[in-house]
Each structure stands twice: as C-alpha cells, then as structure tokens.
Nucleic acid binder design. Sequence first.
DNA 1: CGTAATCTTGAGTCCAATCAACCAATGTGG
DNA 2: CCACATTGGTTGATTGGACTCAAGATTACG
Lengths: 242, 242
Amino acid sequence: MTGHIVSKMQAFVEFDEADLRALEEMCADPVDFRAGDTIVAEGDKPRHIHFLIAGWAERYKILHDGQRQILALLMPGDVCDVLAFILKKADHTIACLSACKVALVTPQKLLDVMAAHPRIERALWWSNLVDESILREWLVNVGRRDAFERICHLFCELALRARVAGVSDGLRLAVPLKQEQIGEAVGLTPVHVNRTLQRMRAEGLVTLGGGVLTICDPERLASVSGFVPNYLHLDRKGGNAA
Amino acid sequence: MTGHIVSKMQAFVEFDEADLRALEEMCADPVDFRAGDTIVAEGDKPRHIHFLIAGWAERYKILHDGQRQILALLMPGDVCDVLAFILKKADHTIACLSACKVALVTPQKLLDVMAAHPRIERALWWSNLVDESILREWLVNVGRRDAFERICHLFCELALRARVAGVSDGLRLAVPLKQEQIGEAVGLTPVHVNRTLQRMRAEGLVTLGGGVLTICDPERLASVSGFVPNYLHLDRKGGNAA
DNA sequence: CGTAATCTTGAGTCCAATCAACCAATGTGG
DNA sequence: CCACATTGGTTGATTGGACTCAAGATTACG
C-alpha cells in the first residue's frame, strides 16, 4: 500500500525493515478522496500531515480576480506538508486532481516516528527540500522560458518524477490534467497551451490525449527545454531523464 | 549584532534569555562578504548553515543561454539554508547584493542548539516555511500578474519584510537592486522595468533612486497589486502592509 | 442520445521584448 | 584637472509571442 512512498524516498535513502514497518503502520488506513475534493483549504489551521499514497493532487492559489496559479503537482509518494502544522493558517489550497488515497498523520505521531527512525526523518527533510527545489525550478520555468520550452520542461519533470514514484516507465504516464490546468501551472492561457501542444506533437516530441502523456523523443524534449534534473536531487538512484 | 535575526524571528516566537544567548553565541563572529561575492555556488556540497546578519543577498539560477532568474531576495535575519546540508549539491547559487555579514554554523552546532532550545527550533522551521511560502507567492507573481502589478507586489513584500527585519520603517528602505535585477526577479527585461517604474512614479506610488526605495502610497500599492501579506505568516506581531 | 465540457481554429489586439541610441553619473589615469 | 571609459538609466521605433474573443468540432458522460 505504501509502495509509492517507499519508492520515491528510496531514491534518497535505503530503509531497513523497521523503517518500512513504521512507514507501513503510519500510513495504514488512508482516506479516500474523489477528484476535485480539497485536502487542505487556504485559511485552514493545519492539523495533519498528509501523505499522498495514490492519485495526483495540486497546490494552488486563487487571486481576487479569479485567476488560478497551480503551485505544485503532487503524485504518489509526495508529502503535502511535512512541517506545515507549525503555521496558524494554510496559505494555499491542496486539492485532488484524480481519486486519491491520503494518509492523515498527526504531528505528534510524525515526530515520534521521526525520532525513532532517523532515516525516515532524513527522507522527509529531503522530500521537503526537493519540493522547495521544484518550486524554484518552476519559477525559473515561468520567469525565463517561452511557452514551448515551459511545457516541454514540465513534461520532462513529470515523466521523471512519475518514474521515480513508480507509477510510470518514464515514457508513458497517466496525467489527470486538462489543457487549462497545464496553463494554470505554467502561466499560459488554455488556447495557447493547445496550440503549443499541437506544435509539440507535430515535432514528434510528445503525445497527450485521453489523460495519457507519451514521451516520443525524451532526448530532444529535454534539450529543447534545458531540462537538467539535478534539482530533483535523485542522488542514490539514477538521476537522468529517461 | 544578531539583532535582526531576533527581530525577524520574534515576529513568530518570543525568545527567553537563554534563547537569546544561544543565538548570540551561535552567530558570534560572522564572516564579511563584499557585494558580488558568492556565499554558496551551485554544485557546492553544503557544509554550513548561513545566517544573514547584515546586508542583502540573492538566490539565483543561470540557464544555458545566460539568462538569470533571481529566486529569492534575502535580508538581515534570513537563513539561507536551514536543512540544505542534507543534500549532496546545492542546486542554485547564493550571492551578496551588498556588503554582508554572514554567520557560518556547522550542521552539528545547529542541531545542538535546536535540541537545547525548542523555541529556536520552531523559529527556524517557521523561517523555512515562510521562505517557501514567499517562493510560492513569487510564482503567482510571475505567472499571473502583469509587469505593473508584479513590481508593485515585490515592493510591498520588500517593504514589509524590511520592517519586520528591523531595517526600515516600512516606507523608506535601502534596496541594493539595479533595475536589471528587479527584472531578473520578476521576469521582465530591464527596459520594461524602467518604463514601469516611471509609470509607478508618475502615479505617485513609489520612488526608486540611488538605491533607496520610498513607498509614497502604501495602500494603493497593495491594492493595485493584490498584495495580501498572509503568506508571510507574521502571526504574533502585526501582519499588515505598512 | 442529448447536453456539457473540452478541445480546436481563426482573426485581431496588446503587452512586453528587441534593437539601438543617447544621457547622466561615476571613476580612473595621464 | 580634464579626456575618457564604464555603468546604469532613459527613450524611441519596431517586432513578436501570447492573450482575447468568438465560433465550431469533438469528446465525455448522464
């Protein structure tokens, strides 16, 4: 059940039997969410740490004029908020993009597990650092790259992360994103996302349809978008784009 | 000497005498850097935690084509990398925008202090969470706001953070940024930054010259850019834009 | 099978980038 | 003390990438 969590974190540390049992127990009975459900709403007092066991989720903010910016895409094995319980109020919303299974862990329980299992503690800090690093790369993406490069770069990242999470071979993956949400993630209008996707398909880079992303030419996709996966910090296992 | 660190973190927790002594001792003899010096270079193995005691610094990444994206602006009281020593390599560069004083603390020393002083531990986690939250807001800024709003929003944030750090009254502050670097922070060309600053001046919002930013109309600056300071999580002291 | 959501296409507009001078302030060396 | 170089700021003309608006094609779904 906790396979994907282990899969991702073992890109960084090697767990022993006791670690695995502790993780297993901590994520024992995850809660089911449906697509569209919100896990944490902006303004909520954070009460739990959320481990995404299955399904995809998104962080986002909405501006006064209704515009939406997606801040992160979360996939199986990602932790939504390792430390957020320290804060009085969540500053953004986390919602499900697909049906999800989410383990809710109390702060105290998490602290206990971390104290008893240093490797788990390190893995969670690492996970947190990687999330932050991804956020920085997204800022680079939106700040410095044009539409074509942006979407290519996003797809490179998603494909690699999905492979690490164990939900894809790195070339074909289920991506529960409409074109509009791709736009909300990379700062483009849905119309322009559409045209850009067509160009990507025409150039033989990727195919996106029916919720499935297929990477046709991973090398060129990476080189055209300047994708360098160092920011994912996949040190122990292979850190290359597939 | 450690006044600004205390100033910022006390926006979140109230330290006692022992906490203050521990902070004082930890940051006892900071290292001097000159403007332009790099504190941590991309690719470096992180060896210390860096506390910015005085001066301004920046995080940035450079792309293959030479473009630069500023990822964060750091001011007195900010911590560069609470947990980064866990990672094998830094994924971005941290450099000084002005002359700086930086306290270098070893991971072990930091862990000891945190273990002995729970309030300091919490304050550092909080600081880390706020940095991440600022990063998210920057992504919103670049992804969803036009040039005018972007720069207004940035200035709102800087003015408030400078006030919290104790280096400004919130209306006048020394900002060691050229127009080009403002552009690198918000994803605009220097030419367009220049024209936008002129418009802001013409509308009586701010004045920027000789390295000094003056906020003339804080209310309108905030409302025109949709600045809502909740993301800075200034819970204990006042969390309003000045 | 019908309705709604999503995707697609086209035409026109606009914000910001680009290119290229020019100006002002600063600083340096002869 | 002044010629000169350098850096940062300013301005103008032009281009272009992405947005907007609006309609039509497709797909998903109850």
